[in-house]
Amino acid sequence: MSDLVLVLAVAHRDARQELRSRAVTVATVFFSGITVVILSFALGPDPDDLRRAAPGILWVALAFAGVISAAQSYQNELAEGAFEQLLISPIPRAAIYVGKLLANWLTMFLLGLLLLAAIVILFDLPLGRGGPLLAATLASGTLGFSLIATFYAALTANLRARESLLPVLMFPVVVPVLLAAVRATETLLGPGQATGNPALAGPWLQLLVGFDLAYLVVCTAIFHFVVEE
C-alpha cells in the first residue's frame, strides 16, 4: 500500500469525522464570526480603521478557531481507542501526521475563505487584482498554522490540562507564521499605498512558504517521537 493512499485515507477519515462532529464545526464558525463582529464594533464606524484592522481581525479569528479545531481532532478518537488502533496499524507515523494535517488544513482553509468573504463584505474592502494572491496567502498561512497545531495537539492529546497547554505551547512557535500572514494580507487588503499592490505581498508570501516547508520537514520527521509511549 503506497504511503500516498494511506495519507489520503487518514485525511478522508479525519475530514469526515470533523464534518460529522457538528459541535466543532458550529463552535469554530460561530466563535470566529463572533470575534469578527465584536472586534469590528470595538473599532467603531470609521471605515479606514476597519480596513486597517481587517487583516489582524481575520487572522485572530482564524487562530482561535484553529486551536479549538486542532484540539478536537484527536479527542474524537481518543475516547474509544481509535487513535491507539491507528497507531498500532501498519501506517507510517509520517503518513498519519500528514493525513491529519491535510484534514485540519482543509477545515481551516475553508473557514478562512468564509471569514474572508464576511470581512470583505462587512468592511467593504476592495479585492482588486489581489484576489489570487490573497487566496495563496490564506492557503499558506492556514497550512503553517495547521502544521504546528496538528503537531502540538498530538503532543498534548493525552494530558489532563491539554486545553490550556495547547495554545501556551503552540502560539510562540506559530507567531512567525501569523505575523507573515497578517503582513501579506495587509498589503493585499489594507489601506494606503500598499493596497492592491501584489508586488509587496511577494516577500511575505515567500517567507510563509519557507516557514511551511521548514515546519513540514521538522514536524513530519519527529512526529513519531510525539506519539510513542
Partner: peptide, 19 residues
C-alpha cells in the same frame, strides 16, 4: 478502537484500506 462518529461500514473501509 473505532471512530465513534463514523459508521460501522466506514470504520471497516478505513481498516480495509490500511491492510
Amino acid at each position: 478502537g473505532h471512530s465513534p462518529t463514523l459508521t460501522a461500514r466506514e470504520n471497516l473501509h478505513f481498516a480495509a484500506t490500511i491492510y
